[in-house]
Amino acid sequence: MKAAVMEKVGAPLSIRDVAIMEPGPREVLVRTAAVGLCHSDLHMIHGIYPLPLPAVLGHEVSGVVEAVGSEVAGLKAGDHVVGCLSVYCGHCPVCASGHQVLCQNPEVKQPAGKADRLRLAGNPLSQVFNLSGFAEQILVHENTLVRIRQDMPLDRAALLGCAVITGTGAVFHSAKVQPGSSVVVVGCGGVGLSAINGAAIAGAARIIAVDMLPAKLELARKFGATDVVNAGAGDAVAQVLSLTGGGVDFAFECIGLKQTVEQCYAMLGPAGTATVIGLFRPDAKIELPAIDFLREKRIQGSLMGSNRLSVDIPRLVELYMQGKLLLDDLISQRISLDEINEGFIAMQSGNVARCVVTFPRVGGL
């Protein structure tokens, strides 16, 4: 099969012929339909998060099941599925406590370079995030996948596995946004727009979008923002405090920068909650004014929207089919696997919400 292989930090990905193994007892072979380009992939390409090379990136993926292992019970050939990096075992103490998204059981979540599922010229390739979606096929543990209804377009379904479940889940699960509340979302990429969309679905009365690009702010209005703040045109904190008369109930940081986390915390009103979604450099630190804790302001993290994978993705599919989840508008470009490097260049320009690699030979797009 063809795959986009990362062979060197900072270099373009190479389209190579890659061998994929047969499914083991609890593994599933999937023909890839679509895979989104995510900033997490870009961080790895730039070497911010080191990994054994060569490797195949890509984790925001959908496809059609081709074959299942001998112990797989919930999936069969022909099923349409969405893959997600928050694979879980279901029986460790973390899973048993209701936090499946935090599962680190090596039975299902193997570090890059440990799983022997892909080979290049006879040598092992690193499977990244237990998925490696930048390829015509993926071989994964069954708990990586969720079956979806077959009338759901697979190019849009792919976005559910990362950007959308992360943004909406942070709203629904991590922060538990209430109807009538006020929200600010800092960063209007794929995750931020999904958080805005989620806040609108949750019934937030005031949703303020903050970004430096006017085109993204206009898109944010389509996703449900009631107000927009151009952070490049003045003090974003002061603008939000002025709009709200003292701060918001919920703030969401969707970039992964020290400055924007601190700004989100400063945008809160009394008893407000800031939820950090963005992916940081490993050595990043933040500073907060301690006196604000006496106003019962809170800050928390959110991994992949604190998701419950097998429950959340079918629900998000239903919200899309009802016209409430705006996946059509989230896709800025559809490209082929051969154009993946151009897609990452477009991502770095800041002018796209989500760029999706599609494999037209797979039905359901």
Rank of each mutant, 00 (worst) to 15 (best):
E7G: 08
E7T: 07
I15K: 00
V18I: 09
A19L: 14
P23A: 04
E27P: 08
G36H: 12
C38V: 04
S40K: 12
I45K: 03
L57W: 09
S62D: 03
V64W: 15
V64A: 05
E71H: 15
A77G: 05
G78L: 05
G78V: 07
C84L: 06
L85T: 10
L85F: 13
V87L: 01
C89L: 06
G90F: 07
C92N: 00
C92T: 10
P93G: 13
C95R: 00
S97D: 06
S97F: 09
Q100N: 11
Q104R: 15
E107D: 07
K109Q: 12
K109Y: 14
Q110W: 06
K114M: 15
A115E: 15
D116C: 11
R119P: 14
L120F: 02
G122H: 03
P124M: 09
L125C: 10
S126L: 08
Q127D: 01
Q127W: 05
E136N: 08
H141E: 03
E142N: 02
T144F: 04
T144N: 10
V146Q: 03
D151I: 09
P153R: 11
L154P: 10
L154I: 04
A157H: 09
C162F: 12
C162H: 10
I165S: 09
I165A: 06
T166C: 01
G169L: 02
G169M: 14
G180L: 13
C188T: 04
G189D: 04
G192N: 04
L193M: 12
S194T: 08
A195W: 03
A202F: 00
G203C: 08
R206C: 14
I207V: 12
A209E: 01
V210P: 01
L213V: 11
P214E: 06
K216C: 01
L217Q: 07
G224P: 09
A225V: 03
T226P: 09
G234E: 01
D235Y: 13
L241V: 04
G247Y: 02
F250P: 03
F252N: 08
E253T: 06
L257P: 04
V261S: 01
A266M: 06
V276R: 05
G278E: 02
A284G: 05
L288G: 03
R295Y: 11
E296A: 03
R298K: 13
R298N: 08
Q300Y: 05
M304I: 13
G305F: 01
G305I: 02
N307C: 14
R308T: 15
L309V: 14
I313G: 00
M321I: 06
M321L: 15
D328L: 07
D329T: 00
I331L: 14
I331Y: 02
R334M: 14
R334K: 15
S336R: 12
G343N: 01
A346C: 02
M347K: 04
G350K: 04
A353S: 14
R354F: 03
C355F: 01
V356I: 10
V356K: 07
G363H: 11
L365Q: 15
L365F: 03
L365R: 10
